[in-house]
Write a protein that binds this DNA or RNA. Sequence first.
RNA 1: GUGCCCGUAGCUCAAUGGAUAGAGCAUCAGCCUUCUAAGCUGAGGGUUACUGGUUCGAGUCCAGUCGGGCAUACCA
Length: 551
Amino acid sequence: MRDFFIPSIQGALRSAGIETDREIQIEKPADKKFGDFSTNIAFLLGKELKRNPRDLAGELIGHLSFPEGSVVKSEVAGPGFINFHLDPAFIMRSVREVLSSGDAFGTRGIGAGQKAIVEYVSANPTGPLTVGRGRGGVLGDCIANLIATQGYEVTREYYFNDAGRQMQILAESVRFRYLERCGLQVEFPDGHYQGDYIRDIAETIFIEHGDVLAASESLSIFKETAEGIIFSSIRKTLSRLSINHDSFFNEHTLYRVEERGISPNQAVIEALDAKGFISRHENATWFTTTKLGQEKDKVLIKSSGDPSYRLPDIAYHVTKFDRGFSLIVNVFGADHIDEYPDVAEALKILGYDTGRIRVAINQFVTTTVGGQTIKMSTRKGNADLLDDLIDEVGADATRLFFIMRSKDSHLNFDIDLAKKQSKDNPVFYLQYAHARICSLLRMASKEAGFDAAASTGENLDRLVEPVEIELGSALLDFPEVIQSCLRFLEPQKMVEYLHGIAELYHKFYQECPILKAEPTLCAARLELSLCTRQVLRNGFSLLGISAPESM
RNA sequence: GUGCCCGUAGCUCAAUGGAUAGAGCAUCAGCCUUCUAAGCUGAGGGUUACUGGUUCGAGUCCAGUCGGGCAUACCA
């Protein structure tokens, strides 16, 4: 609907002889007495032109013109707002687009022909996914869905490392448990992985090999078995949440020598060296970030000869550019917050356009059970497991809980609340609205012969009740809500919006008889219900929750 | 110490620099012989942590103070 106003306002500005490249902001006033839409353009230009905003607004109104039957009144209000009152029938005619566009309602083509990559989860296979990881996973998945609505070809990527120190510790942990299983006395080191899953993996190895491996110091069988088992458990957990990556990028490929005779890692070192940002001392290779104003230089290659995680990270991001992605989104937890700036600096030095990269950092999740906070730690093995959570509250509630709070806020996941199969649980409120509409439409089809599939919304403009107009108008906001989610990489706004739609629908359902209304009014209300169902479905699909037809 | 995030109703959280700061839960009072009551209506509840500043306008931006989380590795 905002697109409807902008050309007219631009026209009025031209007529008034005002040149500006300011973005014209259209908003929906909270109070209906201020109209259906308003703009603050007179304030913005008033400052620029040193003119009284109210006078300017009055002048602009004189130059405004809208199509017949759309805007019934434009007025200046307060210190300089311009408020627009729309003909309700115009709003309701516009709602027909929901039906004509269907599943595509809200989508745009501005990313058509371009590739986007969203990297998320990216947990190394050292243990089962924790609740904390799930938040980033769901956030990333929703962001990928949102980007896909803009026409981009989206790659969902999982970056992992199966060669680093953590994996070494994992393999050792399994070996210790295996040795225990063989009846040997071992001292299990404090810093090693203590979760029960390590014993399970050791048991698997013991069943297959007996105690013959106890004589060898080799870790490879322990590492490979652990990685295989853990990775498949991670993917299984993710798929329970409908998170399915297209691509798994193994960090190790960055160590392999390519046709140019060097590895991607080495290529980064050489390129940074050529720009004068490499120094070598204490047996290590350093990225001289002090030249960029940072306090310390960062190690890229350790004195052991192995790269630190920073180097492959940079090389990995280089591949994202080289693979032709024009939009690059990284989703990770707050604990990795210090990692990205170095990568960005390196990419800038190497001449890449870091403006294509967007980073979504999600704050942590604390889980409470019975009012008690559980702190998570994969190594200590006392982590609350994502799988357990899904078992308890279901996939839909898990997903919704993770994104119903702003990613910048710590999430307090109250398991007791999420477990409740009651109205306290926000997922039920949303899904109930959808199921209610489905039930209604089933009955309408049976009793009144209403054909949902053939409906084009031709009766919508007969609706006049305030709640009907409000609902219709709210449905038209859906595309802009998607834009807003994308601008902030924040699917939480969609949850809020859908909650509002569900609320309006329940209110409409309560106040307006549908099947009992006279035939054309009945048809119009069924059409509005149909439009509501479409918007709910489209929204659910972006959030990755199911749209049950009955509950 | 330094960097990032947060501080809003009793609790969990919303709010592009916009008009009277909103939801849910909890509390209280109503609405089912009628299309799904997993619903709806109404009431109470606030010095937006604090102090200054920027401007037509600040919960939002800036500076500082206080409080909480995370990070400050040759772990990832």
